[in-house]
Design a protein around this nucleic acid. Structure first.
Lengths: 192, 192
DNA sequence: AAGTCCCTTCAAGAAGTTTTGAAAGAACTG
DNA sequence: CAGTTCTTTCAAAACTTCTTGAAGGGACTT
C-alpha cells in the first residue's frame, strides 16, 4: 500500500496541495473498512468521493489513488452494491461519474442488516442443529457419555441464548433503538 | 477447512457420538471469530474447550480439531493474550491443561476496549491531522482552490464528528451502559 | 546431569486473496 | 456501421496469511 507519507515524498508539484491530506483521510478510512471486512480500496475510494465537491470519473479516481482502472471498477461495483456510491451522468459527457452516499448512518445500518444479522442467524441455526443432534443421540449413550453430553447441552444452550441476544441487539441497532449491552450478560447468566 | 459434514463422513466408530455436534458448533464459532478479525482456529479451539467439562491438553485439542500441535500452540497463546483461555495444571501431570473463560461478555468487552477503541482513536487522530494540514495550506491558495479545500474541510469535520461519536458509543458499550445508535446520525447531521 | 516429554518458535511451503494488464464488451459518434 | 471511448471481466502474477514439520528450549525425572 502506498502510504500517504510515501506519496507525499514522491509527489511533484503537479499534485494539488490538498492531495496529501485527502490521501491520509482516505487511508484512515481504508484501514477502518478493511478492519470491518471490506476491501481497503472501497474505503479509500468512498472517502475520495466523499471529500470531492463534484462527482468523479473512474479516471480521476485511479489517478488520485494510483490504482488500475480494473481495481477502481471492481471496488466501485461493490460500493454500489452496498449503496455507498451512486452513478451519475452529465449531459454531453460520455463517462460515468460517481458520487458518495453521504449518510454514514444509512450505510452502517444497511451493512448490519444485510451482513452481520445474516451471519448471526446462520450461527443460531448451526447451534440449534448441533443441539438437536445431541438430543437425538442421548438415548443411545452409556451413563458416562450421557453426563458428558449433558454438559455439552448446557453449554450449547448458553451459546444459543447468547447468539439470540446478539441478534436482538443488532436488530435494535438497525431499528435505531436504544440498546442495553448488559442484555448480553443477562442472557448468558440466565442459562445458569 | 474440513467442514463438520465432511468430518462426519470420514469419521470412524472410534469417534465419540457427540464429536460431530461439537465440531459443528466449533466451526460456527470459528466463522464468527474469523469474521470478527481473529483466526478461525481461535474460535474453534475456544468452543471445544467451552463445551468440555474438563480442561484439555494440547494433544486432545489437536486430535479433536485435526490440527498440528504448532497451530494449537499458536492459537492458544493468542487466546490467552485475550484472556479467553487459561492454563491450569494437575497434580502429578506434566502436561499443561487449558480451560475456556466462560464469560462471553467479559471477552467482548475486552476486545472492544483494547482493539476497536484503539482503532477508532487512531482514525480520529488521522482525521485531525488531515484537517490541520488543510488549515495550514489554506492561505497559500487561489480562490478556486480555496473553495475546493473549504468543501473538504467541511466533510472532514463531519467524518471527525462521526468517529468521535463512534468512540463515545464504544466507550459506553464497554462500560455496559445504554447506547443510542441514533447519536451517530445526530453527530453527522449536526455538522450541517 | 542425561534423558524424556512437552511446548514454542521458526522458516519453508501451501493456500488464499488482491492486483493487474489484456481482452472482451457496451455505448455512443460521425 | 465502423470507429472511438469507456467499462467490465478474466486469468495470471504478486502479495499475504496460514499451516506445518523440524529444530530448539524448558522443566521435570531418574
Amino acid at each position: 500500500m502506498p502510504s500517504a507519507a510515501a506519496k507525499q515524498v514522491e509527489s511533484n508539484s503537479s499534485e494539488p496541495l490538498w492531495r496529501d491530506a485527502e490521501l491520509r483521510a482516505a487511508d484512515a478510512m481504508g484501514r477502518l473498512m478493511e478492519f470491518w471486512g471490506f476491501r481497503r480500496h472501497m474505503g479509500r475510494i468512498w472517502t475520495v468521493l466523499y471529500l470531492s465537491p463534484e462527482p468523479m470519473t473512474t479516471l480521476a479516481l485511479s489517478e488520485t489513488l494510483q490504482l488500475s482502472s480494473s481495481a477502481v471498477s471492481l471496488s466501485l461495483a461493490e460500493l454500489m452494491r452496498w449503496g455507498a456510491v451512486r452513478k451519475t451522468w452529465r449531459p454531453g459527457e460520455r463517462k460515468d461519474f460517481y458520487e458518495a452516499e453521504t449518510s454514514m448512518w444509512k450505510l452502517l445500518r444497511r451493512v448490519y442488516e444485510r451482513r452481520e444479522l445474516n451471519l448471526i442467524r446462520e450461527t443460531i441455526e448451526t447451534f440449534a442443529a448441533a443441539q438437536q443432534q445431541l438430543d437425538g443421540s442421548r438415548s443411545q449413550l452409556t451413563p458416562k457419555d450421557r453426563r458428558r453430553v449433558d454438559h455439552m447441552r448446557k453449554r450449547l444452550s448458553r451459546l444459543s441464548a447468547l447468539s439470540r441476544a446478539g441478534e436482538r441487539l443488532v436488530g435494535l441497532l438497525v431499528a435505531g433503538q436504544m440498546i442495553h449491552p448488559a442484555d448480553l450478560r443477562a442472557a448468558e447468566e440466565q442459562e445458569q
